[in-house]
C-alpha cells in the first residue's frame, strides 16, 4: 500500500484547510461580486430549499383548508359582522386620506409601478444571521435583476435584490444588514442621511449634522429619498426610535431607526421594477 494512502487523513485535512483559507483570503476585504463558485453552489441547492419550503407550506395549507373547516360557519358569521364595521372604518379613513393627499397623487404613485411589480414569497432566511438576507421564490425568469427594491405586504421597505439571482430564486439584502445603505429622510423635520443596519432588528441613521436639530423627532416616520438610485423615493422605512449626540463624532447625531418590516412575519413581498421614466 503506498504511504500516501496510509496517511490519507493527514493529507486531506491540510488540503481542505488551505483551500478554505485561500477562498476566504480572496474575499477579504469583501468585494461586491459573488464568485462563480458561490453562485454555482447557490444555483444547485436553492431548488432544494424551494421544494422543502413548498412541502412545509403545502402541509400547512392542507391543514388549514381541510381539517380546519370545523367551526367555519361561526367564523363566517363573525367575519360578516367584522366586515360591516371595517367597511365603515374604510369609508372614514378614505375621507381622511383625501384630506391628506389628493386622489390624483395616489393614482400617480401607483401607476409608476403598474406592470413592474413582482410578488414573491420568502423561501429562506440567512442561515447565519436572519437580519442579513432572505431568499425569495422569484428569479431571473420572472424578471428579477439586481438592485430592485423589495417591500413587504404593507408597502414598507424590506431591502434590495442582490446576486446570486437564480432562475427561480434570488437573494434579498435586508435593510437591517450591516453593509446595507439607504438614503432616507424624516417626513416632518426633514433630517436626511444614510441608513445602515446593525445586523440586528434596528438601524442607524448616519451623517446627520448635530446642527440640524431634530432632538425631539422621536416617533417620526422616515421615508426613502431616491438619491441612492436604488430605492424609489417615498417608500416608508420606519420610525425614529432615539436621537442622541454621537459620542465618537460630536458633529453628528446618533439616530436609531426601528424599521417597519417585521422579520418574524415576513412572507409575501413585492419586488419593485424600475419606475417608468427612470428615477430609481
Amino acid at each position: 500500500m503506498p504511504p500516501w494512502v496510509k496517511r490519507r487523513s493527514a493529507l486531506v485535512l491540510p488540503g481542505l484547510v488551505v483551500f478554505h483559507i485561500l477562498l476566504i483570503s480572496v474575499q477579504v476585504p469583501r468585494g461586491a461580486e459573488k464568485s462563480l463558485f458561490e453562485r454555482g453552489v447557490f444555483f444547485v441547492f436553492a431548488p432544494i430549499q424551494r421544494a422543502a419550503t413548498g412541502a412545509v407550506r403545502g402541509l400547512g395549507s392542507l391543514w388549514r383548508n381541510y381539517f380546519d373547516l370545523r367551526g367555519v360557519r361561526a367564523e363566517n358569521r363573525e367575519l360578516r359582522l367584522k366586515n360591516f364595521f371595517l367597511a365603515q372604518d374604510l369609508r372614514f379613513l378614505e375621507d381622511r386620506l383625501k384630506l391628506a393627499r389628493s386622489e390624483a397623487q395616489i393614482r400617480e404613485s401607483l401607476a409608476d409601478f403598474e406592470g413592474s411589480l413582482i410578488t414573491a414569497r420568502t423561501i429562506g432566511v440567512d442561515s447565519v444571521n436572519p437580519h442579513q438576507s432572505i431568499i425569495i421564490d422569484k428569479g431571473s425568469l420572472d424578471g428579477v435583476v439586481r438592485d430592485m427594491a423589495v417591500c413587504d405586504r404593507t408597502g414598507a421597505l424590506v431591502g434590495r435584490t442582490i446576486p446570486p439571482i437564480g432562475f427561480k430564486e434570488s437573494m434579498v439584502q435586508l435593510i437591517t444588514d450591516k453593509d446595507s445603505s439607504v438614503s432616507v429622510k424624516s417626513v416632518v423635520s426633514g433630517l436626511t442621511g444614510s441608513m445602515t443596519g446593525r445586523a440586528a432588528a434596528l438601524c442607524d441613521l448616519r451623517y446627520v449634522l448635530a446642527s440640524a436639530g431634530g432632538t425631539d423627532t422621536k416617533g417620526e416616520e422616515v421615508r426613502t429619498t431616491g438619491f441612492d438610485k436604488i430605492y424609489p423615493a417615498g417608500l416608508p422605512v420606519g420610525v425614529i426610535q432615539s436621537v442622541d449626540p454621537d459620542q465618537t463624532s460630536p458633529i453628528f447625531l446618533s439616530i436609531v431607526i426601528a424599521p417597519y418590516f417585521r422579520f418574524d412575519t415576513i412572507d409575501v413581498v413585492a419586488v419593485l421594477g424600475p419606475r417608468r421614466g427612470g428615477g430609481g
Binding site: I24, D126, S127, Q132, S133
Partner: peptide, 14 residues
C-alpha cells in the same frame, strides 16, 4: 451554508 448567507464564503466551510 455560506451560499445561503451574506457572510464571507468559506468561513462556515472551514
Amino acid at each position: 451554508q455560506d451560499a445561503f448567507s451574506l457572510g464571507v464564503f468559506g468561513v462556515a466551510g472551514l
